[in-house]
Design a protein around this nucleic acid. Structure first.
Lengths: 243, 243
DNA sequence: CAATTTATTATGTATGGACATAATAATAAT
DNA sequence: ATTATTATTATGTCCATACATAATAAATTG
C-alpha cells in the first residue's frame, strides 16, 4: 500500500514467481525487456537488472536477439558451509577446545608429495591435531603445509591456536578443493577419534592454493555416528521485497 | 591494447585483485565510489555495479555513510553439485541404466511420517531403485512420495524412468534440504549395493518441498570405496575481463 | 539453390543526473 | 552532560538515453 512504484526487487520477485508457478514454463521464452518495462511501468534498465540477477542464479538463459528462456532445473547445487571448526562447535552451544598431538618437519610421503606438487622427500610441516566439543573428540586434523609457500610457519608452535585458524589469518584469500567421502577408519583415526568398533568416518579432504602455489593439504576426519553435514537450499528471490 | 575504456568487469577485477593481494587488507575501508569513479575514469554507477557484485559474493560489506569494508574470510562455502544421477554417470563416460526394485503404496513408518509431516500410517508411495554405471551398482535409492502433494504419481509405474527424473519434470522448482553422512551399511544396502564386508556407505538424504508442502524424502546410498563428492571453489572475478 | 551480405532485434553496458535512505557527525536544546 | 534535532555523507536505486554486440532473419548475389 505504502508502495506505488515498482522496484527492481519487486520485478525480480514477480518474474521469479511466474517461473516457479510455471506461468512461464520451462523452455518458454519470456517477454522482452521493453515489453516488461511497459507492463511494470519502469525503465528497461530496471527490468534488465532484475532479470540479470535471475539469470545469474541460473533460472533463465539470455541470448542477444534470441531473448530470455526459462531453463530446465539443472543439477541441484547444494551450498555446503565448511565451517571454522571452533565457531561451529560454539554455535552448537558446546565448549570448544583444541589439542596439538604432533608437530614435525619431515620429508613428504609419496602421496603427499603428489598432493602438494613437491618432489618426493622434500621437507614439509606435518601436524596432527584434535578438536573437541565438550571433551568429546569432534574432529581429527591431519595436515601438511608446504614450507616454500608459507616459510613463516616454521616459527609457529601451534600449541594454543590451530593451524587452520592461523593459515586463514596468514593467507585470507585462497582457492580450495574439497573431497567428501565415507571411509573405514584408519588406525590413527581409531586411536584418536574414540570410535565404536567398525564405525566409519566422514572425511573431508581439502587442498588450498594461491596463484598455483599449493599451500596446504588437510584430512579432517569425524565420527560417522556423530557427524553429518546439512544444507538447506531455497529458491531465491521469494519475498525480500517485503523485507 | 584494443581496450581503452574500463568496463565494470575491469573494475571488478581490479578491485578484487586489490583485496586478494591485501593492498586493501581485511578490515580496511576502501575508497568511496566517487573517488574510484574518478580514478578509473568512469561513472559512479559503473563502480557501483562492480562493487555490488563483489559484495554479493561476500568479500566486502557496504553500509551507507559508513562506506565499504573488506570483511574477514568467513566460513568457507563449498558448492556441491548434486548431480542428476544419469547425467553424472554419462559424464564419467560410462553406461547408465536403471532398475526398479520395489514400488508400493503403504502406510508410512513413524520416521517417514515425521520427515514428510504426515500423521502416522497415512499411505504414501515407497520406491526402491538401483542406478548402475556399466553394470556396477552406483546408487541405491530409497524414496517416499507424499501422495497428497503429488496425486498424479499414482498413475506412474516408474518401470523405465526413475522417480527423480519424473519428479524434476513434474515439479521443476522446489526447495531442498540435504544431509550428507557416512554410515554403516544397513541390510538393504548390503543386499543391493554389492559392498565389501564392513564397507561403509556414503549417504545423501534429501527432502524437497514447495510452499510448505513436503513432496518427497529420499535416501541415496553409495559404496564408500567407490564414491566421493568433489568441489572446487575458486575466488571469483579473477580474469573474466580477458574472456 | 547455396553462399554471402545486410538489416533487424534483444540483450549488454555506460553515462549523468536525480532523489531516497541509512548511518554518522555536528549542533542545539533541555 | 544528556538528549533531541539537524546536517552531512556514502551507498541504493531509478531514469532516459545512447551505443555496442551477438544472434537471427531477410535480402542479395554468384
Amino acid at each position: 500500500m505504502t508502495q506505488q512504484l515498482k522496484t527492481y526487487k519487486d520485478i525480480r520477485q514477480i518474474v521469479m514467481a511466474r517461473i516457479t508457478s510455471q506461468i512461464w514454463p520451462v523452455g518458454e521464452l519470456i517477454p522482452n525487456e521493453q515489453d516488461l518495462a511497459e507492463e511494470f511501468g519502469v525503465a528497461r534498465a530496471t527490468v534488465n537488472r532484475a532479470i540479470q540477477e535471475i539469470a545469474d542464479a541460473g533460472f533463465v538463459e539470455r541470448r542477444r536477439k534470441a531473448g530470455t528462456r526459462v531453463v530446465p532445473r539443472r543439477s541441484r547445487d547444494a551450498v555446503v558451509q565448511i565451517p571454522i571448526i571452533g565457531e561451529q562447535i560454539s554455535d552448537m552451544g558446546r565448549y570448544y577446545s583444541y589439542q596439538l598431538v604432533a608437530r614435525e618437519i619431515v620429508p613428504v610421503t609419496k602421496k603427499i608429495a603428489k598432493e602438494l606438487s613437491l618432489t618426493p622427500r622434500t621437507p614439509a610441516m606435518h601436524l596432527i591435531c584434535r578438536h573437541f566439543a565438550d571433551d568429546i573428540v569432534w574432529q581429527l586434523e591431519d595436515r601438511w603445509i608446504n614450507l616454500a609457500a608459507v616459510p613463516t610457519v616454521k616459527a609457529q608452535k601451534f600449541d594454543v591456536i590451530g593451524p587452520n585458524e592461523w593459515l586463514v589469518r596468514e593467507i585470507p584469500y585462497s582457492n580450495a578443493e574439497h573431497v567428501f567421502r565415507a571411509a573405514t577408519a584408519s588406525s590413527i583415526e581409531r586411536r584418536h577419534l574414540d570410535l565404536e568398533s567398525d564405525e566409519p568416518v566422514f572425511v573431508i579432504e581439502r587442498k588450498t592454493w594461491q596463484a598455483s602455489n599449493i599451500i596446504t593439504w588437510v584430512r579432517l576426519s569425524h565420527s560417522g555416528n556423530r557427524f553429518s553435514m546439512t544444507t538447506r537450499d531455497e529458491i531465491p528471490y521469494g519475498k525480500d521485497a517485503l523485507e
